[in-house]
Simulated scan of single mutants.
Amino acid sequence: MSADASTNQDELYAVADFCLIPVGTAEPSVAEYIAECQRVLEKSGLSFKMHGYGTNLEGPWTAVSEAIHACHKAVHAKGAARVATDIRIGTRTDKALPPGQGNALKVQRVEDILKQQS
């Protein structure tokens, strides 16, 4: 599915945060598995940003879900016997979010409030 939400007006635009956790790996570090997931996300065409304990991901709901599914498949293919994922997804219908900027705008809003109050 295209990351362009304009292809389906009924599709909700999703702003998500997910933490993919490979289980049953030979090493305590899971960085190689997370790097594989990031490669999958690069190919998805969606806006994403990795952080210390997960990844922000945004785009049409279906595409976001498909990208997380593809990450699971890729991490299993890399050898992880089990994969657990915590997902938080937000949507809103009161205003349109510019594609790829939902998370950045949320952070900017809080930073602006902090600047005003200092």
Results as ranks from 00 to 15, higher is better:
M1H: 08
S2E: 01
D4Q: 14
D4L: 10
S6R: 09
S6C: 04
T7R: 03
T7F: 14
N8S: 10
N8Y: 06
Q9I: 11
Q9W: 03
E11F: 02
L12F: 06
A14G: 09
V15D: 01
A16R: 07
D17C: 11
L20A: 01
L20K: 04
V23W: 09
T25H: 15
T25V: 15
A26R: 14
P28I: 07
S29F: 04
V30P: 00
V30K: 11
A31W: 05
A31R: 12
E32Q: 06
E32F: 02
E32A: 15
Y33E: 10
Y33R: 04
I34P: 04
I34L: 15
A35Q: 12
E36S: 15
C37Y: 02
C37N: 06
Q38K: 00
R39C: 03
V40N: 03
V40P: 05
L41H: 00
E42H: 02
E42N: 00
K43A: 13
K43H: 06
S44P: 00
S44M: 05
S47F: 05
S47G: 08
F48L: 10
M50P: 02
M50I: 14
M50L: 14
H51W: 08
G52V: 08
G54Q: 14
T55H: 07
L57P: 02
L57H: 00
E58I: 05
G59C: 07
G59K: 02
G59F: 05
P60Y: 06
P60R: 04
W61C: 12
T62M: 05
A63C: 04
A63Y: 09
V64Y: 04
S65C: 13
S65H: 08
A67Y: 14
I68G: 01
H69P: 03
H69R: 12
A70C: 03
A70S: 07
A70V: 01
C71M: 03
H72C: 13
K73L: 15
K73M: 14
A74D: 08
A77K: 13
A77V: 00
G79E: 07
A80R: 02
A81W: 03
A81L: 13
R82M: 10
R82Q: 07
A84L: 15
A84W: 06
T85S: 13
I87E: 12
I87T: 09
R92I: 02
D94F: 13
L97V: 07
L97P: 00
P98T: 02
P99A: 14
P99D: 13
P99V: 04
G100I: 04
G100H: 09
Q101I: 01
N103S: 08
A104V: 08
A104W: 00
L105K: 04
K106H: 06
Q108P: 00
Q108C: 05
R109Q: 08
E111F: 07
I113F: 10
I113R: 12
L114W: 03
Q116E: 13
Q116V: 10
Q117E: 14
Q117S: 06
Q117I: 15
S118K: 11
S118A: 12
